[in-house]
């Protein structure tokens, strides 16, 4: 495998890592126009829950596949509950006040969850078990790809397709689109906006938790701070692709991942973040709404 392919592959890996987090980010923004800074924390809580469950299940002697599925499903459900509660506690009471209030509330929520995990668990780095088993057929491929890498690719694709399908073709998706355009009008037409927003948070949190589990088993370590760092980059990716747009989040993530990887691979990884933010600046100058973002029409 030549060097260029390797660099591109690592860019795609990075891109799909960002995408997995950015999908939930962009979805929540699309519906209620809230930059949910606590999204990264849900990602972290998902990873922690999976770690605890995997350790417990290992003690009970479950096999790898069972551990992977049980730990992932329970962690995803648990994190989705966190997302639901978070919306009820931190965002719903101030939904009709200024947008800045909700943003501050999100930052507060993010700090609260980080420090809660720090105190309840540990501030140390913890090893995350390799809960994804090695797929033997992967070594038959002409490129070297780990099973975690493959799972991240596959999940990003599946989640993106499912979300697009959900929003475009289901009843709840239609309600979501209606609520995002005009909440009052949607209410008048019988859409239960509260339910729609709750569902959005539940789905967004579930994707974040899935990301937390897969990415942590790829990186092999977690601590209470991982959500913040991953969240920042995913946020950049979502803005790059056009925040609010599902395919945009994925596209933006891949653009970001490839830029970083090519920059690091051919110039210097010292300036990785610099390349990422240069591309962000350039795209926002050319297309202020992001690559796939629609120009917002001011509602009068």
């Amino acid at each position: 495998m030549n060097y260029f392919t390797e660099v591109v592959l690592s860019g795609l890996t990075r891109g799909s890592i960002y995408a997995l987090i950015a999908l939930g980010y962009t979805m929540v923004y699309g519906i209620i126009e809230l930059i949910n800074f606590a999204h990264g924390e849900i990602y972290m809580i998902g990873a922690f829950t999976a770690l605890i469950l995997a350790s417990v299940l290992t003690i009970f002697g479950f096999n790898t596949i069972a551990i992977l599925f049980l730990a992932s499903i329970i962690a995803i459900v648990y994190s989705a509950m966190y997302g639901y509660t978070m919306e009820k506690v931190a965002y719903k009471p101030i939904r009709n006040s200024q947008r800045l209030s909700a943003l501050i509330s999100a930052i507060g929520m993010s700090m609260f969850l980080q420090n809660y995990v720090r105190i309840a668990q540990t501030s140390d780095f913890l090893p995350f078990p390799r809960i994804i088993p090695r797929f033997p057929w992967l070594s038959a491929l002409p490129i070297s790809m780990s099973s975690a890498q493959f799972m991240i690719f596959a999940s990003t694709a599946v989640v993106m397709v499912l979300l697009t399908f959900l929003i475009k073709f289901t009843k709840i998706g239609k309600s979501m689109r209606a609520a995002s355009q005009d909440k009052v009008m949607a209410k008048l037409l019988g859409v239960n906006v509260n339910k729609v927003i709750s569902v959005t948070f539940i789905i967004g949190s579930a994707t974040a938790a899935l990301g937390g589990i897969l990415i942590s088993s790829y990186t092999g370590q977690i601590n209470f701070y991982i959500g913040f760092l991953a969240g920042i980059k995913a946020f950049v990716a979502a803005v790059l692709g056009g925040i609010g747009s599902i395919p945009g989040a994925v596209l933006g993530s891949f653009v970001l991942g490839l830029t970083e990887s090519l920059g690091a691979g051919y110039i210097s990884s010292d300036y990785e973040d610099v390349f990422a933010f240069i591309i962000l600046a350039v795209i926002l100058i050319v297309k202020p709404a992001g690559i796939l973002g629609k120009g917002q029409i001011e509602k009068v």
Binding site: E6, V7, S10, G11, T219, A230, S261, G265, S269, E272
Partner: peptide
């Protein structure tokens, strides 16, 4: 001779260069 970004999600780009 190169620097890595602490806390980044993935170091495969820099590892590629080490291998290369």
């Amino acid at each position: 001779f190169d620097g890595v970004t602490p806390g980044a999600v993935d170091y495969s780009a820099v590892i590629n260069r080490v291998a290369q």
